[in-house]
Amino acid sequence: MAVQALDAARLPVDWAKLVQKLALATALFVVAYGVVPAYASGYLVEAILLPFLALSLAAVGLNLLTGYCGQLSLGSSAFMAVGAFGAYNFNLRVEGLPLAVTMILAGISAAGFGVVFGLPSLRLRGFYLAVSTLAAQFFVQWALTKFGWFSNDNPSGVISAPHLAVAGLSLDSATGRYLLSVTTVMVLTALVWRLVNSATGRNFIAVRDNETAARVIGVPVLRTKLLAFAISSFIIGIAGVLWAFTYLRTVEPAGFNLDRSFQILFIIIIGGLASIRGAFLGAAFIVVLPLFLSRLGAFLFGGLFDSGVLDMSQRIVLGAIIIIFLIAEPSGLSALFDRLKRRIGSRSS
């Protein structure tokens, strides 16, 4: 009986859906490479799109580790820092290194760090693992401040973005940085999408859902966890490069503090765990929320709503939203989005 009832819910291969997906991808490309560079204001690019893209990529990376593989991490911002300072130093110390190679090397450095700080995951789970990843957070920030070499002996440890160029084409303008960022994010997201839909991605999910069963059927659990840490940190490291080079342009170690790690964790909780789309929805939400709050505050309270109040109200609202999401929609904005789409679909048909 139950089997027959379930039958109806199963969808056959749907060509209309495939065409729809293709159209969506084309639209995305047109917007990303046509509409935005041509029409977006400098403010939109600098204050919204660049942080959105960097945070989205970091969230995609963390989602791989936490959402798909079930390993809770509070060290994201440390891996971003390793990426950013790594890229800065590779660029500084190796003459004529192409930007793409610099970014990949920075990602690999972050991946190496990720594996080292992922080692406790072989013994620790959940909350205890999260606490142990704090070690990465504090160690990296300490090392970058303590050893001047990392910031080329800048007295306050600040690094500045180098001249950005690909194949002789300067990308230092806001549009140029946007194009660099959006291309990097799209390429890496596509690779992650391939990964999570492959056997390796299913190993991640198997380890998350039932580690004992995974081990017994032959999933190499230890290797899978370390691989998740490595790939996740690689992506977060490159997100750190984008954050430092395309968005902030000058950054100090304190810019990669625990708050940033939490921010990225909140993005994937609000957006939806184990969902790539969720990382983007969550990042958009986190970036737009303060802007929205400041407009709303100014509208309601006028001059009373200064930056101090904004900061405070932002924390309160964000905290409340996270609690609401955890209770009412643990699968995040991504699931909400799906439900909305279904409702609209069922109404129109």
Binding site: L191, A199, R202, N203, A206, N210, I217, V219, A274
Partner: peptide, 27 residues
Amino acid sequence: LFGGLSVRNNIACGRVHTRRASFVEHI
């Protein structure tokens, strides 16, 4: 079982011990 996977993918996991290809080959 692996609650986040489909029935087919759960079953496919049962042959994971025969796999040799690396994640790079999969991507």
